[in-house]
Design a protein around this nucleic acid. Sequence first.
DNA 1: TCGGACCATGGATTATTGAC
DNA 2: GTCAATAATCCATGGTCCGA
Length: 784
Amino acid sequence: MTVEYNALVKNGIWSLVPCPTNVNVVGCKWIYRTKRKSDGSIERHKARLVAQGFSQQAGKDFFETFSPVVKPTTIRLVVSIALSNQWCLRQLDINNAFLNGELSEVVYMRQPKGFEDSHHPDHVCQLRKALYGLKQAPRAWFTKLKHYLITQGFRACQSDTSLFVHHSAAATIYILVYVDDLLITGTDSSLINNFIINLNKVFALKDQGELHYFLGLQITRTSSGVQLTQEGYVRDILESTNMSAAAPITTPADPQHRLVKAGEPFDDPALYRRTVGSLQYATITRPDITYAVNRVCQFMHSPTLDHWRAVKRILRYLAGTLSHSLHFSPTQATSFLAYSDAGWISDSDDSRSQFGYAIFHGSNLISWTSRKQKVVARSSTEAEYRSLAYTAAELLWLNLLAAELHVPITGPPLLLCDNVGAIFLSKNPVISTRSKHIALDFHFIRDQVDSGTLKIGHVSSVDQLADIFTKPLSKDRVFFLRSKLRVLPNHQLAGGFVQNSLVNMYSKFGDMGLARLVFDKIGDKDLLVWNCLVDGYVRNGEVEFALKVSDEMPKRDKFTWTCLVDGLCKCGKVEVAREIFDRMDDGDKSLVTWNVMIHGYMKSGKIELAAELFETMPKRSLISWNSMIDGYQGNGCFYEAMKLFEALLNEGFVPINATLSSALSAVSGLAVLGNGRWIHLFVCGSIESALAVFKGIAKKKLAHWTAIIVGLGMHGLADQALELITEMRRIGMKPHAITFIGVLNACSHAGLVDEGNQIFQMMINEYKIEPTVEHYGCLVDILC
DNA sequence: TCGGACCATGGATTATTGAC
DNA sequence: GTCAATAATCCATGGTCCGA
């Protein structure tokens, strides 16, 4: 107390004056607290004199009170960037920060208890500088710091007011300010050192060195990157709720049981609120509990026994996953990747939908949420669409933030969603909006997609990472998504599945050193994890290691072989690949193995060997044909490519875009109109001749029809394309999904809105063909 | 076509938590 | 003591539906 008091007097915080009449005198009191170290042990006891701000009067004692607070997303992004560029992260603490803030208003305060002036006991303190507790104190301090930073060449960011950036050709420095805690990082560590030395001349500060503890988050560097944890904090919650010894459980929320409003009231609502509030803070590093916590939050006002059971379940889950933390690894991302999902009518009490998103900077999860939508959605598409709008807003903000940080974000963010209808809505302007509010979201997304600042794509429900934010999931699903979000155990590695996922994940991220580390720790290795490692080495071009590992394997399967053959082919070692291929049992050779081998031969120019394999293979897929056609084309054998293309059509295969493009390149290269005359013609100009050739084909197969319709589409000859599809319908030939892309494409070139719509409807209603993103894309073009 | 009933929306207010 | 974020609740407003 005396130390604190002396500091106040020394800094000339106030002067004693006789109490003026008709002024408001603010009270004050001593606050005692224990300061802990990052590991939770006691560092020292602190006494602090605080002004009782509640007795201040607005407009008289203070005018403005705003003080910014750093957003967790900003911290995570800054850490991710610093890690990726191998910058050092430094931490500073300003001593008695608020005492630096200068007051623009005149404020009087009573003398502190125990330190009253014996000569003038009735005098009051006229404050010169801000004191803790004064409503304007944080603002006054922040303004002072801000002005100082600006004089040093820093710019205050618009996207996050607590962030300051110094950017020049020579160096970039970021400073994150949370009241009196500063986090500094940047390109040039000597420049940062100089800055800290200069800052220390203006404000008394404590250099905490390398960043390890910021805003209650533990930040630890590891060999592979950085871990963010709140382990100590979670331990405290468990202790305060007497759940430390509770039996762990594998998922945070019960997928079999939906929470509802009604039920027997819980007798200690305060305990409920306190626990839930604490859990909310724990979600800063634990995206895996975000949904469950948000759900129990919704019953804060009148919790029931059932709700309390749900809270205890979260605590039990945390008890079992205490060592889990959010992992970041170095990344060279040039754009953000987001997953957006919504569960329609998740809440049976008010019919509102739960939505969520996950946003990645490279491999690092930096932003996520799980919330209930404000509005009742009339369909699952509407719910998904709203979710897209929320996510797009966050992405927009992140892009702004990244721009201010001078991060090389070159591409527009990609927003993935598993609802085709919502994607369609986002691209299609001709939708009758039934009310004002959806129109708003609608225009917001549309504008961004139109201007190219946002890309929207489709993701299968299996790979939908935002799934974990919209509904309670099964154990396997939680494990899978959790590791995808990079919430991983720190020390001990529990459970085979987790280990396998880890090996898989590190391989995919190209960190084979770490993958191997985890692999070596696994006691009982199954075939899957061996394959993961082989696959990892192959993917990362380390075929030698892959071969070595495969030799050590107790057992090999189709996947292992194919992986090796693929890897060897890719790096040009076709002979070695062939050796392995020949060593394999016929039963082990899958279609993929054959295709990979053919592709390998073609790539290294061994056409005859490829052809030989193609002839002898037991079964061919479209991919096999593609590899051959593409291979011939790539090796300049245009005639063979064309012949094979014709053979493909005769076998009844429907060419996909890749096949068509290879075949077309082949004809262009050939520049001679042979057997594949018509296909060439419709690309090179003479579509009439192509049609003539097409008409000359006696037994037209689906592939012929599709090819010519696609060709007509490319030329914008919608009338003829429509004629042909009508003809197909007449003779009872069912068009393929790709045929429809051709027709829709034709309509879009010719601007035939009604016809295009009709064809689209016909495809869905008459032929029961599920429209794909490509179909929607064509339709969007038509309607534009 | 008009007016009442009903319901969703959205702003203001009031709780909680955390950080300092 | 201050701040922000997030939730729920209350209440005014405005849109939709349906019967007269």
